[in-house]
């Protein structure tokens, strides 16, 4: 038992690793600040294109969304970071992560927002257009607010997935939370920094997850 506590819950090691992990957390936060808004934006564009009247816009978008939802994000990341250099394009790790996640997230957020868009009855647009609002005014003031509200729980839970997914960036040596914890583990030869990283993820995400469940129960009623 003591051995277990010493190996996994060693407060002394945790304290020593803390500054390193804090820097890692900063990088994780920075990644999230880049990939979540970009993913939402890409998702919005993907959703608009995939619900467009024009099949020349719709079909390629649907194909791309399918592709990036089917590809494991880790495969995508390694392809962008280690595959592209064979074409002479070596991206810095941060940029590689942002690009890979943009592609993956746009597909997922896109499907969620698309579901939101088609959940808004056609009569809403018709009413708006009948008062002289343009197509984009109708989208911005009438359709999107309702669409996003209808899928808000899904958008939030997907964002939780994205936060967790940023730990994949450790494989391209980006010093985010997990990478920093693993560094600390290898230096201290002790698993406690990993435990600490897990605790940090838990403390950050558990309230969101809890809130989501309550929120969804409320909607169900």
């Amino acid at each position: 038992m003591d051995q277990l506590i010493l190996q996994f819950f060693n407060v002394e090691v945790m304290a020593k690793a803390w500054p390193l992990l804090l820097r890692g957390l900063g990088m994780t936060a920075l990644l999230c600040l880049a990939v979540i808004p970009l993913g939402l934006l890409g998702g919005l564009l993907a959703a608009l294109a995939s619900t467009s009247q024009s099949r020349w816009l719709r079909w390629p978008t649907v194909a791309l969304i399918d592709l990036f939802r089917a590809l494991p994000p880790l495969v995508l990341l390694i392809f962008v970071y280690s595959g592209l250099p064979f074409t002479g394009l070596q991206l810095p790790p941060f940029l590689a992560v942002v690009i890979a996640f943009l592609l993956n997230n746009s597909a997922y957020y896109g499907e969620i927002i698309r579901a939101g868009l088609i959940s808004v009855p056609a009569g809403q647009s018709e009413a708006a257009r009948s008062t002289g609002l343009t197509q984009s005014q109708t989208l911005i003031h009438v359709v999107l607010p309702q669409a996003l509200r209808n899928v808000l729980p899904d958008l939030i839970s997907n964002s939780v997935e994205v936060v967790k997914m940023t730990s994949l960036a450790s494989v391209v040596s980006l010093a985010e939370l997990l990478y920093s914890a693993d560094m600390a583990r290898s230096v201290t030869y002790n698993a406690s920094p990993i435990t600490l990283a897990a605790l940090i993820y838990l403390i950050l995400l558990w309230p969101v997850v809890r809130l989501m469940s309550r929120f969804q129960r409320k909607i169900a009623i």
Partner: peptide
Amino acid sequence: RRRIGMVFQSFNLYP
């Protein structure tokens, strides 16, 4: 269209 008012069967108010 701003010169033509329309009222729908299902109201279509913005909720």
